[in-house]
Design a protein around this nucleic acid. Sequence first.
DNA 1: TAAGAAACTGACCGTTCGTGCAGTCGGTGC
DNA 2: GCACCGACTGCACGAACGGTCAGTTTCTTA
Lengths: 178, 178
Amino acid sequence: MNKREQLIEIATRLFSERGYENTPLSVVCEKANVSKGLISHHFKSKDGLLREIFLKTTKLIVGINTIDNINQNPNEQLVELLESFFSQLEADKLFFQFNMNVIVQPNTREVLDDLIKERSSFIFKKTKEVFDKIDSKNSLVKSHMFIAELDGIALNYLGVYRDFPLKQIKEYIIKKYT
Amino acid sequence: MNKREQLIEIATRLFSERGYENTPLSVVCEKANVSKGLISHHFKSKDGLLREIFLKTTKLIVGINTIDNINQNPNEQLVELLESFFSQLEADKLFFQFNMNVIVQPNTREVLDDLIKERSSFIFKKTKEVFDKIDSKNSLVKSHMFIAELDGIALNYLGVYRDFPLKQIKEYIIKKYT
DNA sequence: TAAGAAACTGACCGTTCGTGCAGTCGGTGC
DNA sequence: GCACCGACTGCACGAACGGTCAGTTTCTTA
């Protein structure tokens, strides 16, 4: 297997599980059976590695948010968006953990600033396109609320409530947007 | 001024602004005009200082969530809760920044685990008491949704969208719960 | 198959971290 | 005025960090 890809994979998992600051490169290298120097070679620095990982997760998010928005009616599109969000949330906790971490933490936030802005404006644009079809008057506020709801659900599911009733929340919110 | 209090105040600001991991005690001591040894003396360790700060913020949150729930009708209580949430969010960004940081970041999350569980179960209990009066059937899901919404709003307001329309969101959500 | 480029190693460097500890200082009770 | 105590200082230590670099191996291509 390509050591570069292997490095990204391992680092993604470790950064998600332990946080960026709390994961020394020595541990990443150890787990990936790779020498320290190779990180410098491929990514220049630890921050470079972080940016590479964030870019990769952005591609996944773009995939989730890019649904064919021509033939469906807007409410069906919202439900489809919700379905893919919840299945992703259940399938890959670490994915959300990582994104929450790096956005909230000041130092990583700074390192990724341009990438975060780019990603979030994409998500907002895609969401607003759907809400424009439903109610062009309040679409801005409703789009922000929609995104905030999902983020809040992910936040509480991951980090706060151990017995978070994800299934019930999912049913409730899908019914709301149908 | 009491150096212990001064230390807590300065550390709170620095941990919020720069993150816990990224704030060495040397910087805290420098800004507080205090020696390193004093932290050991008062808080035993850096983690001890963190727990002390978290406890203090919990007291503030308890204050926000403790409203006289006898004479008002439940919807008025919700609005009051929302009002105090939004005014706090506008007045003290760092307060939310700090709480988001330590909950999301794996290492601080671990250090504060018991305190976080205690706090969040208190918040949930208080919220559910209100929703029980409105609709006892769906109160559990609705309480979780209510909390998730507010957390999501705080998250996006703080960390993601620079032009987040907080005022409009506030009006929208207050209307929703009236 | 020669030779240059790219992948990769591992020892090493300078720095910074949290913590421990010996010791100073000022106040308080006896 | 003596004994005591908590607040407080500041240095020193060992560990751990990210990054560098000279050198080795593997791949590419002509």
